[in-house]
Amino acid sequence: MTIPTKDVHEGLHSEQGAVRGDRVHKAKNPVIKVEDLAWLEFEKPDLDAAERFAHDFGFITAARTADTLYLRGALAGTHCVVIRQGEKSRFVGPAFKAADIADVHRLARAANTSAYTLPSPGGGVGVDLLDPSGIPLRVVAGVEELPELPILQRKLIFNTNGELNRVNATQRPPREPARVERLGHVVLESTNFNKALDWYQQKLGLIVSDFLYFPGQRDQGPTMAFIRCDRGSTPADHHTLAMTLGPGRKYIHSAFQVADLDALAAGSEYLKENRYKHSWGIGRHIEGSQLFDYWRDPDGFLVEHFTDGDMFDNTVEPGWAEMSASRLSQWGPAVTRDFLEANPSPHFIKQIASALADRDNEFTARRLLGLAKVALK
């Protein structure tokens, strides 16, 4: 009897797998393998306003000094956002968590630099690096972990699929901030997408879950990658880092896990009542499968609540699909111009002109045409 085979990508996470000549999805012998994102660092001029939004979005203040705000989620772990006082609002960079302190020193030696002791709160050891895009990042280990807080949103009991699990009891989840549980991922734009992706694979041991390419440009290679940590047989988030080719070097968005759809939706209503700017949602993504809801903070940074995301171990091969606005979600409202940042500003036009004039990057005129097609498909 012949057992029929099944393509691993059919109904799993993408339309198709790799073909001969596609770029590799992981390095054979990386310097280290990071385990997760530790935190994201920002600078903002008004820490009070930043903290107000943070609490309404569902963060908890872990610590605050005269010039720095440390935010955390409810699950055990390190603080997940650091906001320092600065003259203007800007994204500084991500910090990745290494398996141990020895890995931090190994990475420092490979980069011909030195590791150093991190200040409180948290302590630990870190090394500062610069990726090929020019984005600064930090790799840390030995940072003190905060205990789980007794404020996780209550798990709801559902009557679904004909199963009667709740009797003589109502379902009344409160309209309150969706309590952030943990940091999930960050999305960055690069003019040197392939060089940067190679660097993250070779230095940090990250592996690609899904590749996307501009319409009609599969032969030119990918222009976006959803990248996860390689934890061996232990499942990791579908993407801890996502990178996309574009005319700039910048932060796109970051995502924070909440308990479930009810928490996400009730939190969405709470943010609307408090007159924050909604960007897009609620819906379910394709790459990563997570339920999502996107918001702009008072400084314009895009932040996402998500729940029910894919978890892959290191046996899943990457998927390949065409990038288009219409396939950003399985269901939900149409993607907005705000989310796509489809309202060209003088700064954006200047950025494109500068990128096209720079012969050392990957954002060419052909890539610009491909990017323009994404919004039309």
Rank of each mutant, 00 (worst) to 15 (best):
245 L>T: 03
321 A>P: 02
321 A>V: 05
273 E>K: 12
361 N>D: 12
81 V>E: 03
115 A>V: 05
219 D>C: 13
338 D>H: 07
3 I>G: 04
180 V>C: 04
216 G>H: 14
247 P>G: 14
338 D>W: 06
129 L>F: 15
148 E>V: 10
198 D>M: 00
51 E>W: 01
147 P>V: 10
364 T>H: 09
333 P>G: 08
102 A>I: 00
269 E>V: 05
104 V>K: 00
344 P>K: 13
161 N>I: 13
105 H>C: 06
308 D>R: 06
337 R>G: 10
177 P>H: 08
362 E>Y: 07
286 I>P: 00
370 G>Q: 06
334 A>W: 15
135 I>K: 02
201 Q>F: 00
33 K>V: 10
123 G>H: 10
106 R>C: 00
300 G>N: 00
296 R>P: 02
173 P>F: 04
197 L>T: 07
307 T>G: 10
36 D>W: 10
265 A>R: 09
249 R>M: 15
359 R>K: 08
198 D>H: 09
37 L>E: 07
264 L>E: 03
311 M>L: 15
122 G>Y: 02
268 S>M: 03
317 E>F: 01
265 A>K: 04
350 K>Q: 12
16 Q>F: 13
359 R>F: 00
278 H>E: 13
368 L>C: 01
60 I>P: 03
300 G>I: 01
111 A>W: 12
170 T>S: 12
204 L>R: 02
368 L>A: 12
195 K>F: 09
280 W>G: 05
90 R>F: 01
318 P>H: 05
372 A>D: 02
163 E>W: 12
329 S>H: 09
24 V>A: 07
175 R>Q: 14
342 A>M: 12
332 G>P: 02
243 M>T: 01
357 A>P: 10
38 A>L: 03
228 R>L: 10
143 V>H: 11
238 H>T: 06
135 I>S: 03
108 A>T: 01
200 Y>D: 11
63 A>H: 05
28 K>A: 13
32 I>E: 04
322 E>M: 08
219 D>W: 14
327 R>G: 03
274 N>D: 06
236 A>L: 04
343 N>C: 06
336 T>A: 05
218 R>S: 02
279 S>E: 07
312 F>G: 04
301 F>H: 11
122 G>F: 02
361 N>M: 05
327 R>D: 07
141 A>C: 11
173 P>Q: 00
107 L>E: 02
115 A>W: 09
125 V>T: 15
119 P>V: 07
122 G>Q: 00
263 A>M: 04
237 D>L: 06
186 V>W: 04
187 V>A: 15
268 S>W: 03
191 T>S: 15
127 V>W: 10
222 P>R: 02
240 T>I: 09
303 V>M: 14
360 D>Q: 06
361 N>C: 03
159 N>I: 14
153 Q>F: 09
230 D>W: 07
294 Y>H: 09
175 R>P: 01
118 L>K: 05
60 I>F: 09
312 F>I: 09
202 Q>I: 07
281 G>N: 07
134 G>I: 13
203 K>E: 11
248 G>R: 09
248 G>Q: 01
313 D>S: 14
340 L>N: 09
338 D>V: 04
21 G>Q: 12
66 A>V: 10
152 L>R: 13
290 Q>R: 00
39 W>G: 10
40 L>T: 01
93 G>M: 05
345 S>E: 13
